[in-house]
Amino acid sequence: MPLDPDYLKYPHRRYGMDHDRYEWSMLARRKPVTWPGGARVALWVNLAVQFFPLNQSGRPFRPPGGMSTPYPDLRHFTLRDYGNRVGLYRCLEALDAAAITPTFSVNAAIAEKYPQLLDRLNRSGNEILASSWHMDTLHHGELPRYEEEELVQRSLETLRAAVDAPVVGWLSPGRSQSGNTPDLLAAAGIRYMGDWINDELPYPFATDYGELIALPLSLELDDQFIIQNNLHSEWEYADQVKDACDYLLAEAESTGQGRLLALSVHPWLMGQPHRIAALESLLRHISGKSGIWSAPARDIVAAWERQRV
């Protein structure tokens, strides 16, 4: 029996994308972006402040970094919690030493579980991006819209009540979205999101409730992706980030187009005592280069927005 004839139909075979969320556009052919102070590369270092629940549903997939042995998986629960207690503070010290400004993506559950931690981040004045409720509340295509809407609202209300600065940025757990996520985020006052990894600069993203800005947070350069998924060492990770930094600086120089180096760092991973030196090393490398502009996500988005036609 042959396949259903519909399998050989291509309803979206046309110019541009196969959806209406954003325009097809090649990075190299866009109007050049420039950064404040004539910087060539904007640097967004995102620290993930995460809560992985012990009673993980794992639906529709195990969140990256989530529980993986039978309940109660104290092993992974505490390894992840280490980041909030110890690792984060080591990372902050390393960032301070390199004079690099971090941004924090925070699960709203942190506000309830560890208010002292959130207070501290709030008082530092650094930007906080909302990151849903916790790492097991995945946004995905099988989640009913009303449940996701409630999840977005509850997460944002909780974080906004605890944070002085506007919470207008978003990063989904596991970088996973449903088809409704962008609409729900825009309706709830979110202005930019880091989930889509198809670009290296901000770009406009259409929703039913007005425009969002996609601010891609590189997955291929994410510490967890390189160290836990690819099983490379922390020093190999540091080399890869340094190579990326040098490459983007050179490309920005030769093309006259500003570039973005977006680094996703997990304190439970890089904050381990045997790894922190690798983080320090790569941060030193980056901050030692001229032409780097370290800024919170909101400033990078604002600088990009000011240059739109």
């Binding site: 970088r175 996973s176 449903s178 990894i197 670009d199």
Partner: peptide, 17 residues
């Protein structure tokens, strides 16, 4: 992942963009 798998899709779209 369930459709839309924006991670897989975005990874590939990056190549063209």
């Amino acid at each position: 992942r369930p459709i839309p798998d924006i991670q897989g899709y975005g990874t590939r779209d990056y190549g063209n963009r």
